[in-house]
Design a protein around this nucleic acid. Structure first.
Lengths: 344, 344
DNA sequence: CTGTTAGCGCGTTCAA
DNA sequence: TTGAACGCGCTAACAG
């Protein structure tokens, strides 16, 4: 299949290096290196010849080696499970921005236990990344130390206030979003508003959302029952289950605020099954404004946060820092929007 | 913030190497290296001292350097956009298996133009990955050459038959799945079955699905109109739009087979809006069996393929090959299932 | 504009 | 069981 008589010798990629290319062209290895990273420093004629040889040989420069000389081009990131979580959009944002900046993205996906987090971070740091992006605040103290002493810039995509960040933070005020949505529901006349989230432990974003919900209830003078809250897995079934649980506990519950659109959408399906009118029988609100939210029947009232942009901005911060930009914001707060549709 | 008086000097990670650790313990660098990769070759007492020093110094071995010595531990992969596509589950499968095997995953996400593909592959190859996983067949001939000469094992997650694979293939027969679903719909009494997909060009999986749909229609002796097919973007809105287009074109259309659950779910919402009974007015079938499919109202009839497992298996193949396993299957075909629920 | 020298941090090789 | 020397492929720094 592979052609063998087409000009340049095609040694396997393994054995091919700047040295070899240099030899073929009759220049020094350094010249080849320059063609790769600072083309302008090389005379056009020489450059052309080198480029040609590279092309003919099918040479792909070894980035491991160049990274060892200090210009690493890896961004490391550890993210929670991608399914149903809206994280996929964020990852896409990160990926796009990385590519544009000439960086590659090393992705570790895992659950958020302290040990798993620590081990993931350790692994990533082994690759001497130019920068790191983490979700939520880093819990493990050891991991924090490691990150600090690695010297790499770090962005936590997280709640923008609370604990001391390691370095930079990009995110929204989850407190504000949840507070705003709860107030919004109250303003629409709902009296008894439930709150459903995925497991909160160790996730400061969810903690802040719950706190925002509490703050709003308190301010409204609404009784603040723990029994108005449930935690369920991040699946449509979880949302349906939560709806059932809460309405059985409180016959008079008239709206539920879900910490994720996935959950809210599941609950809406359950309402259809029971032929409950939305919002007549109960109002449903979500969080995230995923693609389906606007198309849902009935359209979902939700909190819109631009996750794609969050991912992009996180990488941007890193690259700006690496580019030596001064006066870089420590905290980047993205806005949000209460999208008022028909479900509540 | 960072403690400075806690025992071992904490030089920045940059300056820390086996050499430095060795000096502190009073052994040769090689001994430290062995503790890291072949602990059994080192006397327990020595090992303990080294480990302690590593811990105290917060030393994280540089994987770039070890990769350069031939034992690279990177799996490179390029995937289509993660949102709405079911690819997220696959990525999760890949990630889990990589971690378990001690590999890191370098992820490039991009659209599937030939140039983008080539450039992504080139970038990835620069990191001298131990293995590569690609979606669909690789189109660019240059990229194929590059992959072959890189010497790395390659898995294409794709249609399992058709073009000559570069190396190994993992996937399902998309032809079979679509054929089976179309036959299934026919068996349930549907006479005029539409087909909706996301843009087919350059995606052999979608091509095969369409071909399977065609084959079934032909076998059933059903007239095979191109006007029964539409392509739309992979969004819920796209699904809704397709429903409208097809039903306007053919008043007698009685079922639509969508090449993705996302599309089908969008169409179901549109039916609700129009108060069309499902499956009374029209039957809807999807593809993928995403989490929401079973919870949807009405529950979605769909093709179930285990995307998580596909991702896992792809990495498994790579690792088995790297582990020197003989008699490795070139083609790994995962099964599928027609999940008959109420929407059709 | 181009070449030379030196060395990044590790592991392979061979010797002790 | 441990150590010394060498080199992987690339590039910073300095000459020329």
């Amino acid at each position: 299949m592979a052609r063998s008589e087409d000009g340049g010798d095609k040694k396997p990629l393994e054995r091919l290096g700047v040295r070899e290319i240099a030899k073929r062209v009759g220049v020094a290895p350094m010249t080849v290196s320059r063609v790769l990273s600072n083309p302008d420093m090389v005379a056009p004629a020489t450059r052309a010849k080198v480029l040609e040889a590279i092309e003919a040989a099918g040479f792909v420069p070894n980035r491991l080696a160049s990274s060892m000389k200090g210009n690493g081009r890896i961004i490391g990131t550890v993210v929670p499970p991608l399914i149903n979580s809206g994280i996929a959009e964020q990852v896409q944002g990160m990926s796009d921005e990385c590519q544009q900046g000439g960086y590659s993205m090393l992705l570790v996906q895992g659950e958020f236990t302290t040990e798993a987090e620590e081990s993931s971070i350790r692994t990533l740091l082994g690759w001497r990344p130019a920068g790191m992006i983490l979700q939520s605040f880093v819990q493990s103290e050891v991991a924090r130390q490691l990150l600090v002493s690695s010297g790499a810039p770090v962005v936590e995509i997280s709640e923008i206030k609370g604990r001391q960040p390691i370095d930079m933070v990009v995110g929204v005020s989850n407190f504000e979003t949840a507070y705003a949505m709860t107030m919004h529901l109250a303003a629409k006349g709902y009296k008894r508003i439930g709150f459903v989230s995925t497991p909160i432990h160790g996730n400061d974003r969810l903690q802040q959302r719950r706190t925002g919900y509490h703050a709003a209830l308190t301010e409204l003078g609404i009784e603040n029952h723990a029994s108005l809250e449930v935690e369920v897995p991040i699946t449509a079934a979880g949302g349906a289950e939560a709806l059932v649980t809460l309405t059985e506990r409180h016959a008079d519950i008239d709206a539920i605020f879900f910490s994720s659109d996935t959950l809210a959408i599941g609950a809406v399906q359950e309402c259809h099954r029971r032929a409950w009118a939305i919002p007549g029988r109960i109002g449903i609100a979500g969080y995230g404004d995923m693609d389906l939210a606007a198309q849902l029947y009935p359209p979902l009232t939700t909190v819109k946060v631009n996750r794609y942009e969050m991912g992009r901005r996180a990488v941007r911060q890193l690259l700006d820092r690496l580019g030596g930009k001064q006066k870089l914001a420590t905290i980047t707060s993205l806005g949000f929007e209460i999208v008022d549709r028909e479900s509540a």
